[in-house]
C-alpha cells in the first residue's frame, strides 16, 4: 500500500513538472515577455516603455539558455519560484502573489468545503430516495427534473439566485464577505445554496443510476432472501457497494469546484482564490495566473491521489496491491 502511494505521488510530481513546462511554453515561449508588455502597457507604447516594463518585472533574462550564468534564465526562475512557493509580484499591480494566495485560501475553502460536503450528502440522499421509487412517477419526474436543472448554466443560477433571494426576498445579502464567525454564515448562505442548486441535477442522476444498478445485483437478492428489509438493504448493502463508483465520480466533480469557486466568489464578492483568478484575467496579470494554475494543479493532483488511496479503504478487493 505504501509503495503504491509513493509511486503515485512520484508520478504526480512528474506531472506537476509537466504542468510547469506547459506554463513556461505558453507564457514565455509562445507569448513572449514582449507580448505581455504590450498587452499590459498598451499596443501603441514606444519600445523604451515596453523595455522598462520588462525589466521592472524581471523578464529581461534569456529564456532558456544563458551562456554566462547557466542558471540565470527565465526557465530556471520559473521552476524555482513555483517549487519554492515564492511567486514574486503580480504583473498588474505588483502585489506579492504568495501573500495574496495565502489570504485567499481561507475564504475559498470556507465556501468550497461545505459546498462539496453538503452537495454530496444532499445528492446521495435524494438519489437514494428517487432510486427507491424506481419505475414510478417519482422516479420519472425526478429524472426529468435532473435533466432540466442540469441544462441551466451556472451563470443563470447565480444571477437568478442573487435576484430572487437577494433582491426580491431579501433573505440573505447579495454579496460580500466577513470572516468573523458570527456573521460568516450569512454571507456564505446564498453562494452555498446556488452552488447546491446548480450541481444537484447531474449528481442525483448519476447516483441514481449507480443505486439502481447496485440494487439489481445478486447479493441484494441474497440479502432479501435472508429477511433484510428494504431500508437495511439500501443502507447496509447498496450504499456500501455504491461508494466505489461514487468515489470515482468525486474526482470528476472536483474541477467543477474550481469553476464554481471562480464564478461564485466573483459574483458574491468573496475574496478567495477564484476572485483572484478573475482579477488576474481582467488585469492581464500573467504572473498571478501562472501561480494560480500551478496551485490549482497541485491541489487537483493531490485530490486525485487521495481518491485513489481511498479506494483501498472502501473496496476490500483493492486493499492488497
Amino acid at each position: 500500500m505504501l509503495a503504491y502511494i509513493v509511486r503515485r505521488t512520484a508520478y504526480g510530481f512528474v506531472t506537476l513538472i509537466g504542468v510547469l513546462l506547459l506554463l513556461f511554453v505558453l507564457f514565455f515561449l509562445y507569448a513572449s515577455p514582449h507580448e505581455m508588455a504590450r498587452r499590459a502597457v498598451g499596443e501603441k507604447a514606444p519600445p523604451e516603455v515596453l523595455e522598462q516594463w520588462i525589466v521592472n518585472h524581471g523578464y529581461d533574462k534569456p529564456k532558456v539558455w544563458n551562456p554566462e550564468h547557466p542558471f540565470d534564465t527565465l526557465l530556471v526562475e520559473h521552476f524555482r519560484r513555483a517549487l519554492s512557493f515564492d511567486f514574486g509580484r503580480g504583473d498588474a499591480d505588483g502585489t506579492p502573489i504568495t501573500q495574496r494566495l495565502r489570504e485567499g485560501m481561507g475564504p475559498s475553502l470556507a465556501l468550497a468545503v461545505p459546498s462539496f460536503v453538503f452537495g454530496l450528502l444532499f445528492s446521495v440522499a435524494l438519489a437514494l430516495f428517487v432510486a427507491y421509487f424506481r419505475e414510478t412517477y417519482i422516479d420519472r419526474m425526478g429524472v426529468i427534473v435532473c435533466v432540466l436543472t442540469m441544462s441551466i448554466s451556472t451563470l443563470l443560477y447565480i444571477i437568478g439566485g442573487q435576484f430572487l433571494i437577494g433582491k426580491l426576498l431579501r433573505w440573505f445579502p447579495i454579496s460580500g464577505f466577513d470572516a468573523s464567525p458570527s456573521v460568516i454564515v450569512r454571507f456564505l448562505m446564498l453562494p452555498l445554496v446556488v452552488s447546491l442548486a446548480s450541481g444537484v441535477g447531474g449528481s442525483v442522476r448519476f447516483y441514481r443510476t449507480v443505486f439502481i444498478e447496485e440494487g439489481g445485483r445478486d447479493y441484494v437478492r441474497t440479502a432479501r432472501a435472508k429477511g433484510c428489509g428494504d431500508l437495511r438493504v439500501m443502507t447496509h448493502h447498496v450504499l456500501r457497494n455504491a461508494l466505489i463508483p461514487i468515489l470515482t465520480r468525486t474526482v470528476v466533480v472536483i474541477p467543477f469546484l474550481f469553476t464554481g469557486s471562480l464564478l461564485l466568489e466573483s459574483f458574491f464578492g468573496i475574496p478567495g482564490l477564484g476572485s483572484l483568478t478573475v482579477d488576474a484575467v481582467q488585469g492581464n496579470d500573467f504572473a498571478t495566473l501562472r501561480a494560480l494554475v500551478f496551485i490549482g494543479s497541485l491541489l487537483f493532483i493531490g485530490a486525485q491521489i487521495a481518491t485513489d488511496v481511498s479506494y483501498s479503504l472502501v473496496d476490500p478487493r483493492v486493499r492488497f496491491e
Binding site: 445478486d218 447479493y219 441474497t222
Partner: peptide, 30 residues
C-alpha cells in the same frame, strides 16, 4: 418468513455475496 421458515441459495456464488462485507458478517446478519 424469509431466512427463518424458508431460505434460499442461488446459482452464482461468485456474485451472491456482497463484496465489501466479510462472509462472517453476512452470516451473522442472517
Amino acid at each position: 418468513v424469509r431466512g427463518k421458515e424458508a431460505a434460499m441459495i442461488f446459482q452464482e456464488p461468485m456474485t451472491s455475496l456482497s463484496p465489501v462485507l466479510t462472509v462472517g458478517a453476512q452470516v451473522a446478519e442472517a
